[in-house]
Design a protein around this nucleic acid. Structure first.
Length: 496
RNA sequence: GCGGCAUUGGUGAAGUGGUUAACACGCUAGUUUGUGGCACUAGUAUGCAAGGGUUCGAUUCCCUUAUGCCGCCCCA
């Protein structure tokens, strides 16, 4: 049997629905912040990542998927999203657009040649956003706020935002020197890995798991103490904006990120859920003002954030977050003989065109088996075709919840279903099959809001009956968008 | 790149150097002349990740490979 490649995953069934839902929430959040979706190629010239990330690190030397194509080009499957976005910004001369900063987001697969473990795969899906062309501290706060709000809208509660500032190049260098000076006398007391880090990447000693908690680490110099006045002022401004936006965070001097190109603001968002394993960072980001010029573009101030979809989904599962996932069908059409099957084919087509989710039998099961199948599919109604009924232009239709059965004229079947299915929990009276405002179409407006509630906020969706303490804005409050469900004061959250 | 543990049917799994690989769920069919979910009955792995070795004989022992889980390195 041919197996999937190491560190890759097949996502299907219910899990795939969860992914689609998470993606829809991401899209909605990005839209609110006015970040535009962009797609860049999955493979790029190897040089892009070598120059972007830096030659010396393990990352580029042994953790990318590299190959030479048939034309002799050196190709690398993208290990992250930022480099491609910056390349595109330069190549398409987006810096020339008067509409600055450029705010974009992406969502796609990345490839890293690593040994898989919990929360780490070789093919992973990341979403992220970048703001290119502004050094305003407000953009730092905006990116962090957007990241936090995505998690909130999804309904995650146990998250922690860690922020830090590395300062400008001058501050960074001063800090690095101070660290080396501080740790050198203690070199023999550090773990073996840290002894190597002291020379290669002293900042990462602060991240060490072995030495964590030791007095040497606790008393190490803090980035913040080495920020020059301008950098310090800038960091204070970022924190002020976060306070104004009511984003909770903690300044954590040990957040340093791995790459050289970061400066000023760096941040990580952790899942604080039990059982998450050692890789519990949902996402991270920071400012990278030097990258664009390093890639032959103009000097451009940028900040970005990226988050792993797999880890987000894992956090949602561990927190048992409820999601508005439609996994039932409106009607299952049963039949036994060939003549009935032909009518089933016709009826299936007809009702689907009318907007219902319709299923029928494809594997030759008997009636008993078809009833079981209808249950498995969570069919709300069952139509039992029988030749005699059909000759009388009638059909047996059964409510699969109450088990009540009616015999109705085929002429009124559509109206019958329409009435039955749209008078459930939801009273929006919607009769437009393409509107997703109704309970049957996944709106979630019937009981509780699906906006990913957090405490301490008031819902602004304008629906009285629906008591929500959601975080930030409810995403059913789409301004200027008219719902065609016909209920006043009820705003639809469909994206048309 | 380094290390620990794992891999038995559609699923969860038990098990042993030697005739038919437990048990449960599921699934299919029947009892039920076209209305299920209960009950009962029957069927449901020529196979124990793949390949090689030891042995009279291996799913069981050994080796290699693959994949999975967990950790280290690294972390974009």
């Amino acid at each position: 049997m041919i197996q999937k490649q190491k560190g890759c995953n097949d996502i299907y069934g219910r899990e795939a629905k969860v992914w689609k839902y998470v993606e829809s929430v991401i899209d909605a959040a990005m839209e609110k912040y006015n970040y535009t979706y962009m797609r860049t190629p999955i493979f790029e010239a190897t040089e892009l990542f070598h120059r972007g990330i830096g030659e010396g690190t393990d990352i580029v030397s042994k953790e990318t998927y590299d190959f030479v194509d048939r034309g002799g080009r050196n190709i690398t499957l993208r290990p992250e999203g930022t480099a491609g976005v910056v390349r595109s910004y330069i190549e398409n001369k987006m810096y020339g657009d008067p509409n600055q900063p450029v705010k974009v987001y992406y969502n796609g697969t990345m490839y890293r040649y690593e040994r898989p473990q919990s929360g780490r795969d070789r093919e992973l899906t990341q979403f992220g956003m970048e703001v290119l062309g502004s050094d305003d501290p407000l953009t730092d706060a905006e990116v962090i706020s957007l990241a936090v709000n995505i998690y909130k809208m999804l309904g995650l509660k146990e998250i922690k935002v860690n922020i830090n500032s590395l300062g400008d190049n001058e501050s960074r260098k001063a800090y690095r020197d101070a660290l080396v000076e501080y740790f050198t006398p203690y070199i023999n007391e550090l773990c073996e890995d840290c002894q190597v880090r002291l020379e290669k990447n002293p900042l990462r000693i602060l991240d060490c798991k072995v030495d964590a908690g030791s007095d040497i680490l606790k008393n190490a110099p803090k980035t913040i103490d080495y920020l020059n006045d301008a950098s310090k002022k800038r960091f204070d401004e970022v924190k002020d904006y976060l306070d104004i936006m009511q984003i909770k965070y903690e300044v954590n001097p040990n957040i340093v990120r791995g790459l050289d190109y970061y400066n000023h603001t760096v941040f990580e968002i952790e899942a604080k859920v039990e059982g998450f394993g050692s890789n519990n960072v949902l996402g991270g980001g920071g400012r990278y003002n030097g990258l664009c010029s390093q890639l032959d573009g103009p000097e451009t101030a940028c900040i970005g954030f990226a988050s792993g979809m797999g880890r987000v989904v894992k956090a949602l599962e561990l927190e048992n977050v409820k999601m508005p996932i439609v996994d039932d069908v409106d009607l299952f059409i049963m039949y036994v003989n060939e003549e009935e099957k032909k009518y089933a084919a016709y009826l299936t087509q007809e009702l689907r065109m009318a907007g219902f989710i319709v299923e029928t039998e494809y594997t030759g099961r008997g009636l008993k088996g078809q009833f079981k199948q209808a249950d498995r599919l969570n069919a709300k109604y069952i139509a039992i075709l029988n030749s005699e009924d059909l000759n009388n232009n009638e059909v047996h239709i059964k409510n699969n919840k109450t088990k009540e059965e009616d015999v109705i004229s085929l002429d009124v079947l559509i109206y019958y279903l329409d009435e039955q299915l749209n008078t459930g929990d939801c009273d929006c009276g919607c009769d437009d099959e393409y509107c997703d405002c109704g309970h049957d179409h996944g709106c979630g407006c019937d009981e509780s809001c699906d906006c990913g509630c957090q405490e301490g906020y008031e819902c602004t969706c304008g629906d009285d009956e629906h008591d929500c303490d959601c975080g930030g804005d409810c995403h059913c409050n789409e301004e200027g968008h008219e719902c065609h469900c016909g209920e006043d004061g009820h705003k639809c959250h469909c994206h048309e």
